[in-house]
Design a protein around this nucleic acid. Structure first.
Lengths: 207, 207
DNA sequence: AGCATAGTTGACTGGTCGGTCCAGTCAAGC
DNA sequence: GCTTGACTGGACCGACCAGTCAACTATGCT
């Protein structure tokens, strides 16, 4: 009776998902390969059949996290059913809901999956650092496009959209880290909206 | 001549200093007790004479780091020889110089010693999380006082000084993390000045 | 049927982890 | 000079680390 594909249909994906969840809620160093395998219901040998190292798995985790964030957060928040800046507000609201929900479920604020890895590993693993950088770069591009649209629509005065996108993203990262360190989702709720007011003027400085 | 206290004058302090340097430039998990001892020229047994655990040493490291930041950064930047907001600019400039100097010396951007530990350990060690939170709280207070002075002097419109101080600090943390992940001090230089424009209005929301 | 191969298993390795233990050392107080 | 107690040295501990390996199983292809 519907035997089919007995041999674990998606061992590789289960490993990625387990690692993503565990590393996100703890840290890279605190989660061993053995713990990831146990959570995924997979034996050590199978792990190394699919991934040559913990580092390589982590790169795959970063891809998976980016996909998740894009689909669950960005694509939802950025639906063009309202003005660009209102979409940014929706983005912050969705992000806050998620952080709050994680706090309720686990007792901890997880922060940003990319910021966490960047903070922990940037000085120690150049490959992972570059990957995190690439993810942030993609996020910045999305933000930049939104700001360009806002400028075009006249909802935003002309700014250096690249720098302003980077600044807004940095601010969100900082707020996430602050909320995580205080272990309080309301910190995010209180501080995040100020992101919308951040501006970096075009070219050199002026007023 | 001037014998006194032959028995290692400051073994404890050397351990703290070594741990501070190593953990700051790598991470908590990447630096073992053995490495700290070796760097300090101290044997394992002595370590555990002065500190009951690596965690306790880390708490002492946080105190030492805070003292260092206060003396080398805050106390220098906040000298009241100019208007409050100009002191904030000087703070950013000093912070940038330090990050740049570390990059040149080690090849890496270290980021913020508190933010790093907060990101890595907040979900895993409640005691350290609280300590990091306390440090941030002190920093916020310093920033808050400066903003209060700026408002009083008429250099800044009335804002929610507590929330605005928190937002500015969060922004600096985010910029430091961004610069660390990109491994480029110029990111800090470009983005940091926007901190001065961050505002959170008093009480409820308005415009 | 037979073979190739993707996938699985669990025992195993060398090394490192944080932490323990205790005999020894030295300076100060009596 | 003897005792006390802070401090030191270093051997040692069990647990865990990332990673290896050879034997095994099931599936798909011919």
């Amino acid at each position: 009776m519907l035997r089919g594909m007995v041999r674990s249909p998606d061992t590789r994906q289960r490993l990625i998902d387990s690692a993503r969840e565990l590393i996100y809620s703890r840290s890279y160093a605190d989660v061993g390969v053995a713990a990831i395998c146990e959570h995924a219901g997979v034996r050590k040998g199978s792990f190394y059949h699919f991934f040559p190292s913990k580092q390589e798995l982590t790169l795959a985790v970063l891809d998976a996290s980016f996909l998740e964030i894009k689909q669950q957060l960005l694509d939802r928040a950025f639906v063009p059913d309202r003005p660009p800046l209102a979409r940014l507000e929706r983005f912050l609201d969705l992000a806050w809901r998620f952080q709050k929900q994680m706090k309720e479920a686990t007792g901890h604020m997880p922060g940003c999956p990319f910021g966490n890895l960047g903070a922990e590993l940037s000085t120690r693993d150049e490959t992972i650092r570059r990957k995190v950088d690439a993810v942030f770069s993609s996020l910045r591009t999305g933000m930049r496009d939104l700001l360009a649209e806002a400028v075009q629509a006249g909802d935003l005065e002309p700014v250096d959209i690249d720098a302003t996108a980077a600044a807004m993203l940095a601010y969100v990262e900082g707020v996430l880290l602050t909320a995580k360190t205080r272990n309080d989702p309301d910190v995010f709720k209180q501080l995040a909206p100020a992101m919308l007011g951040i501006r970096i003027p075009p070219q050199a400085e002026n007023a």
